[in-house]
Design a protein around this nucleic acid. Sequence first.
DNA 1: TATACTTTTTGACAATTGTCAAAAAATGAA
DNA 2: TTCATTTTTTGACAATTGTCAAAAAGTATA
Lengths: 183, 183
Amino acid sequence: MNFNNLSGIVPLDLASEILSLLEKQTFSKNHLLHKQGTICNHIYLVQKGIARTFFYKEGKDITVHIASEGELITAIDSVISLKKSRYNVELLEDSEILTISYKALQSLMEKHPEHEKYMRLILEQLYAEGADRIEEFLFYSAKERYDNLIKKRPHLINRVNLGHIASYLGITQETLSRIRKHP
Amino acid sequence: MNFNNLSGIVPLDLASEILSLLEKQTFSKNHLLHKQGTICNHIYLVQKGIARTFFYKEGKDITVHIASEGELITAIDSVISLKKSRYNVELLEDSEILTISYKALQSLMEKHPEHEKYMRLILEQLYAEGADRIEEFLFYSAKERYDNLIKKRPHLINRVNLGHIASYLGITQETLSRIRKHP
DNA sequence: TATACTTTTTGACAATTGTCAAAAAATGAA
DNA sequence: TTCATTTTTTGACAATTGTCAAAAAGTATA
């Protein structure tokens, strides 16, 4: 789901209200937008650059989510539940990030319930995207998942380390390297 | 997410309005609530019994979602997008199902925007559940996924065919049978 | 109970993916 | 450019999971 053009989703007058809550910041590569073990209060919109959510399993670093221009990223295991997060959110390039406090978004919806509808529409899309990703694991082999990723998000291939892409697809870097060799 | 007790989520006065939209029906085992190739207009709440969403990949039947008492099920690839669905929704037992038209739900929200908030809260939960399921594939082996399922939803084990559980976990029935033998 | 049908298990083997170590290639900074 | 560092590839081998066919176990119904 691409949020670069909110006007496709949210009416203009409401969009400007949301935009007033956004804080634009520039960070350099490797900066952590969010650190594991803390509660995550924010949602990040990548305006320029690229970010990933990852965490450690048995010492290994596993990428859960990747967001590039126009996409959202946050520690999803914390921002709704308000539990401490197991995730880190890291920038893979120097990036421009719009930050929104989830609390501020909730207050906005309290005050102006007409925003609720657009939050729902966004969540519907995100939910459907999640369902698609689950399907990938159910129906496709490692090679097919990689091919599908290239088709859907070709810009990631040259901007994200192979190891991150591999763990995002649920395989090892070595396997992905071999998959790539035999097209 | 369990919807048997809506009162935990939705205030009572609104819950009753939603309940008035629900149509209760009894179906027997193997009935298809939804057939692939058609647009899905409904969301189903399983009150008694058990249902699964599945579809065919290369002749093989793959289970995408399983819902038992208090859980929702629908053809998620269709009900939001209004595209023709690839999914079937099938009952695995004689069941009591509450059916709600998604259009009716949308009209209700148009008329009474105070419902939007609860739809959003529900979607937030569903989204977080989807994220959990994706994690399962990223971090856990077949055996671990099965152990996690037993822990989270033990009641499914004796009510759903091994083959359905296996494809839901992304493995073959033979592999699951062997996993079960070596605890 | 006997029979037909469905579901689960097992065996033999193949294919896929993982692990560990090291080499090669690419990248970045001095 | 050179050197150090990071990333990607490769090799040898192991572990996991899949495939196909058949047997065994379980279930439903006459």
